[in-house]
Design a protein around this nucleic acid. Structure first.
Lengths: 114, 114
DNA sequence: GTTTACACTATCCTTTCGGGTAGTACCTAT
DNA sequence: ATAGGTACTACCCGAAAGGATAGTGTAAAC
């Protein structure tokens, strides 16, 4: 299915799919933090981000998990311990994210010339 | 400003900026249609997309315009005629969009292995 | 002279996303 | 005995995005 063929069901196109995977408000930051630190625990992630709430962090992680971007490893102990890390799938996206970032850096401040 | 430094104001990071420019529900489709056809008129765009409403199309185009992604050329005649086309800035993004698209195509159907 | 087309705008409504606050069960440290 | 830490969930709420419907002014086509 080509991008120009869709009629509103954007998630079914390759591009729309990619967008849906990384489009959440905090998803990129989470991906970057996991890329930098390999494995991070829930409350640690919360502390590093700061402004996010538990509920939102939990939701974003769950979405990333069902999209196959993060792995969740739970240790059956008390108090609980859960470690989050990137999947291989997520790692293959990192170079593309870098490029998007570069494009943004180049164009963010550019004046619009008509 | 690095991506890992932001605290909720995502639009100020290069990546967040890029995302905000292409993140609208129909923006990608519009960009692709303009890339394929060079210049397209308003109602023509509406017909090609189909499911979009005038209001939404109008809003998305306006946002793309203020972000410097599309040019709007108005002909002072009756009935009105307006042509939309991509700016150079938008054209520099096309290769990156292709890559996002490829990643999506490769990963969309992949099963998640834990 | 009624319809059609153009490029929209206005108003209202629904859906979606994320935020705020509180609470859970259990254990460790003081 | 009390406070704090762990990894969450439940419930409610507000803002923002986008959809539905209708209307505008002019002119050409039928």
């Amino acid at each position: 299915m080509s991008v120009a063929d869709y009629k509103g069901n954007i998630k079914e196109t390759p591009f729309g799919y990619t967008l849906s995977v990384i489009g959440g408000k905090w998803k990129l930051l989470i991906i970057y933090l996991l890329a930098e630190n390999q494995t991070v625990r829930f409350n640690d992630l919360k502390r590093r981000i700061g402004a996010i709430t538990y509920k939102t962090l939990s939701a974003q992680l769950k979405e990333l998990e069902t999209d196959g971007m993060v792995k969740r490893k739970e240790y059956p102990q008390v108090p609980p311990k859960v470690e989050y890390s990137l999947t291989e799938k997520a790692e293959t996206l990192l170079p593309v994210l870098e490029e998007l970032c570069e494009w943004g850096a180049k164009n963010q401040s550019k004046k619009i010339i008509l």
